[in-house]
């Protein structure tokens, strides 16, 4: 179907208007973060700062231990992701390939947990954590999220598309089940694993409510609650150039990851959505 020039221009115009609406908040954040204090209250507002105040970033970095927040977020994110991939692959393999009684019923039960709002499970989990003395610790941020229904579901759907003959052949050749999983199945399932890993990491990196509840010291804060701590330090205040610089510090890594891995993100969602 070839479209007329007029129609194509119309589509482009609509896309540009909407695209600008999506991007403007990011650009405004960037612009404000490089302004001086008096410049942020100028009217009408200017997009390009008179002088680029790169020192805003240094200042913010010094006002709160953002370096530490980064390390915490990174550590928690990586361990959670690795955990989710390992437990996900094992469970998905069991649900897709092994024959056992009640398999599909257990799987449905597992999927049903996706329906349960987090608020319901949040409070008992918090009480358990405080009973075993895990409040304000890395384990507390990691362990409850190490196995998720979403990753099992996504991986199982992928494993189902791999012909069982492959495994039979490997077993005949004397390959153990575990070795088959790690050396043959996992490399084949790379796209699905990449999606699980990306969403796992993103979920952990952006997670807010749980860290807000269980973390109470600066050396344990992750980036989102670190940002919140920084804001409260400023008294909620009017120092928007600092607040925007801090927001950008928090958002930048995922934006970068996204630019390099956008195909994985978008395919991952399409995969989970269409079959869901």
């Amino acid at each position: 179907m070839r479209k007329s020039l007029g129609k194509r221009i119309l589509v482009h115009c609509v896309l540009i208007v909407l695209g600008v609406a999506m991007v403007v908040p990011f650009l405004w954040m960037l612009s404000t973060s490089l302004k001086g204090y008096h410049e942020i209250f100028r009217y009408p507002p200017n997009w390009i700062p008179d002088r680029f105040q790169w020192s805003n970033y240094l200042k913010v970095w010094k006002l709160a231990p953002f370096g530490r927040f980064y390390l915490n977020s990174l550590f928690v994110g990586i361990v959670t992701t690795v955990g989710q991939v390992i437990t996900g692959v094992l469970a998905a393999y069991a649900f897709a390939r092994l024959e056992f009684k009640g398999r599909d019923r257990v799987f449905m039960l597992f999927l049903a947990t996706l329906m349960v709002p987090t608020q319901v499970t949040l409070i008992p989990t918090y009480i358990v954590m405080s009973r075993i003395g895990w409040i304000n610790s890395y384990q507390c941020l990691i362990v409850p999220f190490i196995s998720t229904a979403f990753s099992v579901f996504l991986l199982r759907q992928f494993f189902l598309t791999i012909p069982p003959e492959l495994e039979e052949a490997a077993i005949v050749d004397g390959c153990s089940k575990l070795r088959f999983i790690f050396t043959i199945l996992m490399p084949l399932a790379k796209p699905a694993i990449a999606s699980v890993a990306l969403f796992g990491f993103l979920g952990s990196w952006n997670s807010y409510l749980w860290p807000l509840i269980v973390i109470n010291s600066n050396d344990m804060r992750t980036l989102p609650i670190g940002l919140r701590y920084f804001v409260s330090q400023q008294g909620g205040g009017s120092e928007w150039h600092y607040l925007m610089a801090a927001s950008l510090i928090v958002m930048l890594p995922v934006l970068l990851v996204f630019f390099f891995a956008q195909k994985q993100f978008i395919e991952g969602i399409a995969r989970s959505g269409v079959k869901g």
Binding site: V23, L202, Y208, L227, V231, M251, L255, F265
Partner: peptide, 20 residues
């Protein structure tokens, strides 16, 4: 890419930007 961009960012950061 542009329309998908906000999805990956943290809600806290986004909320800060919109408060401004």
């Amino acid at each position: 890419t542009i329309f998908y961009l906000p999805v990956v960012t943290s809600m806290v950061g986004v909320s800060m930007v919109f408060a401004w």
